[in-house]
Amino acid sequence: MTTLPEQTDKKLGLVIDLDTCVGCHACVISCKGWNTENYGAPLSDQDPYGANPSGTFLNRVHSYEVQPDQGTAQLIHFPKSCLHCEDAPCVTVCPTGASYKRVEDGIVLVNESDCIGCGLCAWACPYGAREMDQEEKVMKKCTLCVDRIYNENLPEIDREPVCVRTCPAGARHFGDLGDPNSAVSQLVKDRGGVDLMPEQGTKPVNKYLPPRPKDALPEIDVLAPYLDPVIGEPKGFLGWLDKALEKI
């Protein structure tokens, strides 16, 4: 049924720290690896070694330059995957019931055997979180690694989404955002986590932690200009070279 649940028991999702992400794309690669080898249709590539490579990815990292009114520009790496929205527009548009939001944990999934590949859910998603696989002709999206987080065959430390497990910078956090006492909820509270495109009314579960203000250089002492420069006129061989070159 593609109507959305009134509410979900948990709100599992990610918190992404834009201050910490270094833009290494390790989450992109681990996501592609895990989701190609495990649940559902593999994530295909077209012309991977040719002139026009293209493929299905459930997680992509953008990089933005942000120029403040004063001072230097900042470069911010911006990982983006499904935000597992509470009011997921991708679910309600689905004509077949293939797209659904789970009542138990709020994860938005696609039942691939019911997907007719019409693409309307990708149209309805403002975040570009859904991609039609060009080989399997079904819609692919982030599953929040549903086949890892409850998987008792994996060591407990690995029971989190592979992007979170892989991130070498610790920029990605996984947990229950419906529980105000969870570590992720506390993190969102402390750092002022935000929703992407809030005006779209999707109520995303995933939150983004904005970059913290940059350190400013401490003010230089007023007497500093009166100090002797540390490096004076060159002496010795360098002094001779300097004079010789100036004469030429």
């Binding site: 953008h62 933005y64 330059e65 942000v66 520009a73 911010i76 992407l196 005006e199 983004y208 904005p210």
Partner: peptide, 14 residues
């Protein structure tokens, strides 16, 4: 609004 980085400055896709 897409990146929520607008309060820092002008956002450009780099």
């Amino acid at each position: 609004s897409a990146t929520r980085l607008g309060n820092i400055g002008t956002v450009r896709a780099f």
